[in-house]
Design a protein around this nucleic acid. Sequence first.
DNA 1: TAGTAATATTTGTATATACAAATAAAACTC
DNA 2: GAGTTTTATTTGTATATACAAATATTACTA
Lengths: 131, 131
Amino acid sequence: MYFSSNALARKIEKLAQESWKPVGLSPSHAYLLMLVIEEPGIQPTALVEQLLLTPSTITRLIEKLEEKKLVVRTTEGKSTNVYATPKAKQMLPQLNKCLGHFYENYSTILGREESARLVQNMNKVTDKLEH
Amino acid sequence: MYFSSNALARKIEKLAQESWKPVGLSPSHAYLLMLVIEEPGIQPTALVEQLLLTPSTITRLIEKLEEKKLVVRTTEGKSTNVYATPKAKQMLPQLNKCLGHFYENYSTILGREESARLVQNMNKVTDKLEH
DNA sequence: TAGTAATATTTGTATATACAAATAAAACTC
DNA sequence: GAGTTTTATTTGTATATACAAATATTACTA
């Protein structure tokens, strides 16, 4: 179980990295950016929930996107809002294309149905392991 | 798929870390050590295959176990042999116990059958992603 | 057999992520 | 409304792993 889940995650990670190479972003950065474009002003807490990552990781991801001038942060009180820059918004079609490629890649290899089933299974297990 | 496989791997990793806490080793170190005890003089290349990790990672794992005086390395020519120390051999029962706990942990949560099915599925997918 | 190719391992450095502590602000509580 | 608790975010540091280059040795080839 231990090596199986790790090995699978690493393989998928690699495939995803390949898929997002055209936009020069890691999969996590790309997913985060797409969420920010979709929901302007989204807060880190919401990103934590959607991406299943910890707050510190989300901060790090945002920082990097800020460096690349793809997002800006505004802080009011204890909460922070994240917005996509025009530069990022222009990238949206390419981001979607990469996402599509990624999906095609693994669905071609595994079949659409089997892929869906596996994802469902993994989510179920992850939820059960929550505590 | 991307977040599902990553999230699952992280959850399992955490569960495994808990399980091996009693011996003060990370899951990867523990699995490697058990292989070395089982097959004295095993070479890094063989460990790479069994643990599904890269050569550099294997070197790092061995280094750490060497620091802890749990293994020794002998180099002859281009190849290296790894042996468990008496100290490590004495730990074997505890290592097995941790392995058992880990298995019990996730099988209790998921059920034995479902666990086995998931592992099979993940392995199948990982193999298919090989290229 | 000298020169090149293949194999095994290690080293330098990078990525993805997390935990725990720090900071800051808002929300309760009495 | 002063003091405490909760919530949101960031920062310092650590872990697990990988890639690419370096090193060393053995095997092949012409």
